[in-house]
Simulated assay, not measured.
Amino acid sequence: MNDQQKAAAQACLEGAEGNLMTCPQIVGMLMQAGFEGYAIDFRRATATYYLPDGEGIELPAHRIDAPVAPTFDTTLMQAAIKEAQQQVPGYTYKGFCRKAALAGCASYIVSFSGRRALYIGRTAETHVENFPHQ
C-alpha cells in the first residue's frame, strides 16, 4: 500500500466523520485509489480499508456513545440506511452510526465490486443493502 492510498483512506474516514463527504464521494475516492472495499467495526471503533492484493489499513474511528443493542432490528437498520441515502435534513454520519448501533448493528462491510453493504448484528444476523441505482 502506498502513501497516496493511506492518505485516501484517512481522508475518507475524516470526510465521513466530519460530514465533509457523501457516501458516493467516499466510494468514488476509495475506488479511484484502488480499494475494493472497507469495513467498520462499531465495537472496536475501527475502519479497515482493503486492497485486492490482501493488503489493508486499519484506522481508529470515532467511538459511538451508545452500546450495540443485543438484538438486530432490520427495520430500524433499514430506516437509518434510508436516511443516509436520502441525506435527510440533520443527517450526520455519526448519527447514522449511533442509530445503527441502537438497531443492533455491530459492524458493516462494503464491497465495491459486489455493489452492496452487509450489516452484521452481534449474533451474526445480517442485512444486505445493494447500492442504489444511479
Rank of each mutant, 00 (worst) to 15 (best):
Met1His: 12
Asn2Lys: 09
Asp3Cys: 04
Gln4Met: 08
Gln4Pro: 00
Gln5Phe: 08
Ala8Cys: 03
Ala11Ser: 11
Gly15Glu: 02
Gly15Trp: 03
Ala16Asn: 14
Gly18Pro: 02
Met21Val: 01
Thr22His: 01
Gln25Glu: 15
Val27Ala: 06
Leu30Val: 08
Ala33Cys: 07
Glu36Asp: 07
Gly37Gln: 09
Ile40Lys: 04
Ile40Gly: 04
Asp41Gly: 10
Arg44Pro: 00
Ala45Asn: 12
Tyr50Phe: 15
Gly54Phe: 07
Gly54Glu: 05
Leu59His: 03
Leu59Tyr: 02
Pro60Phe: 08
Arg63Pro: 01
Ile64Trp: 03
Ala66Asn: 00
Pro67Arg: 03
Val68Tyr: 09
Ala69Trp: 05
Pro70Asn: 11
Thr71Tyr: 14
Met77Ala: 15
Lys82Leu: 10
Glu83Pro: 00
Gln85Pro: 00
Gln86Phe: 02
Gln87Arg: 13
Val88Trp: 04
Val88Glu: 10
Pro89Leu: 13
Pro89Ser: 13
Tyr91Ile: 14
Tyr93Lys: 00
Tyr93His: 10
Lys94Leu: 14
Lys94Met: 07
Lys94Phe: 01
Gly95Ala: 13
Gly95Gln: 10
Lys99Asn: 15
Lys99Ile: 08
Ala100Gln: 13
Arg116Thr: 00
Ala117His: 01
Leu118His: 09
Leu118Trp: 07
Gly121Lys: 13
Ala124Phe: 07
Ala124Ile: 01
Val128Thr: 15
Glu129Phe: 12
Phe131Leu: 02
Gln134Gly: 00
